[in-house]
C-alpha cells in the first residue's frame, strides 16, 4: 500500500474527532438544557459545555484535554493490508500529538515515563473486521480516563445489589454503576452495557456500543424497553450535569447482549463522558475520502 492519502486523511479524522462534538450529542445536550431551571448549576454546566463545543470548533482545539484512549474500528475489504494501515495510523497519531490535537497521554506502566507521540503497546487500539464492500470504513472513539475509571463489571448473581440473573438484575447493575459514577465520568454521559460474554468481550462490546448514534434503540425489543426504563429511572436520581444536581444525569443508554457460559453472567457497564468524541470516514482504495460519517 502506497501512502497516497491514507496518513493525511487519518490525521484529519483524529483532528475532527478531537475538536468537533458530533451533532447528535450536541442536540442531546441542547434538549437537556431545556429541561433544567435557568438559575441551576445544571443549566450553567450544560451552557458551558455548549459554549466549549463552539470554542473548540472555532479555535480548532481539543474539546477535552484528556484526549483519551484512541480506538480505531476498521471495516476492511478482503485481502486488505492491515499492517500498512496500522503504520499509517500510528504516523497520523504521532503527527496529531505534535500539533496539539492529542495530549502526550501515554505512560510506560513500569518506568512511569511519558511517551512523546502516544505510540505504545496499547496505544492506539485497533479493531479490524472484514467487510464485503471495497471501501475502507474507519471509525474512531477517543475516551478519556475519567470516564474509563468509572466503568464496572458485575458478575451475577450479586447479592450486594440484589441482582439476579435476569433483566431486572441488569437494571440494578446499571443504576448502581450510574449512582457510583456520580459526576466523575463527566455527566451527562452515555452508558454502554453488555449483558453476557466473558470479561474481555464484555468490555469490548460495551464500548463498541458508543459507535451507535444517540437516538437509536436496541434491535432486541426487551433491551430497547430496558434502555427506555433506565432513562426514566436515571432522571429521578438528581445527580445532574457534573454531579452538581439536576434532571440530566445521562444523555443515553445502549444495551446489547452476547452469548455466555452457563457458569458466567457478566453485566459490563462502560461510561462515555458528554465530550463524546466519535467520528468516522469512508475511504476509497487509495485512501481518498469517499464520505464522512456521523
Amino acid at each position: 500500500m502506497r501512502n497516497g492519502h491514507w496518513e493525511k486523511n487519518l490525521f484529519e479524522l483524529i483532528r475532527r474527532t478531537s475538536v468537533d462534538l458530533p451533532s447528535d450529542v450536541e442536540a442531546g445536550i441542547k434538549r437537556a438544557l431545556k429541561k433544567e431551571r435557568k438559575d441551576s448549576h445544571a443549566y450553567w454546566v450544560l451552557e458551558t459545555i455548549l459554549e466549549n463545543a463552539a470554542i473548540s470548533r472555532r479555535n480548532d482545539t481539543p474539546l477535552c484535554q484528556d484526549t483519551g484512549t484512541l480506538t480505531f474500528y476498521f471495516g476492511v475489504p478482503v485481502g486488505f493490508d492491515t499492517n500498512a494501515i496500522v503504520a499509517h495510523t500510528r504516523a497520523a497519531v504521532a503527527k496529531a500529538t505534535r500539533q496539539g490535537y492529542l495530549r502526550q497521554n501515554t505512560i510506560d506502566s513500569v518506568s512511569g515515563a511519558s511517551y512523546d507521540t502516544n505510540i505504545g503497546s496499547a496505544s492506539p487500539v485497533f479493531v479490524f473486521q472484514q467487510q464485503a464492500r471495497k471501501k475502507v470504513e474507519v471509525r474512531l472513539i477517543m475516551k478519556g480516563g475519567g470516564s474509563e475509571n468509572v466503568g464496572l463489571q458485575y458478575s451475577l448473581p450479586d447479592f450486594s445489589i440484589n441482582a439476579n440473573r435476569d433483566l431486572e438484575g441488569v437494571r440494578r447493575c446499571i443504576l448502581d454503576a450510574v449512582w457510583r459514577a456520580q459526576g466523575n465520568g463527566c455527566a451527562p454521559g452515555v452508558v454502554g452495557v453488555c449483558v453476557g460474554g466473558d470479561r474481555a468481550t464484555g468490555y469490548k462490546q460495551s464500548k463498541e456500543l458508543f459507535l451507535r448514534r444517540l437516538p437509536d434503540r436496541s434491535r432486541v425489543k426487551a433491551l430497547a424497553r430496558l434502555e427506555e426504563r433506565i432513562m426514566k429511572d436515571v432522571e429521578k436520581l438528581g445527580i445532574g450535569p457534573m454531579g452538581l444536581g439536576g434532571r440530566t444525569t445521562l444523555l443515553g443508554v445502549k444495551i446489547d447482549a452476547l452469548s455466555r457460559l452457563p457458569a458466567s453472567f457478566f453485566v459490563t457497564v462502560s461510561y462515555m463522558c458528554w465530550a463524546f468524541r466519535r467520528r468516522g470516514v469512508l475511504l476509497g482504495s487509495e485512501g481518498g475520502v469517499h464520505r464522512w460519517l456521523y
Binding site: 475538536v19 458551558t48 473548540s56
Partner: peptide, 13 residues
C-alpha cells in the same frame, strides 16, 4: 471549586 469537566477549550481561553 468545581470547574466544568471536559470544558477544556473554554477554560484554556
Amino acid at each position: 471549586l468545581q470547574a466544568v469537566g471536559g470544558a477544556a477549550s473554554l477554560l484554556a481561553e
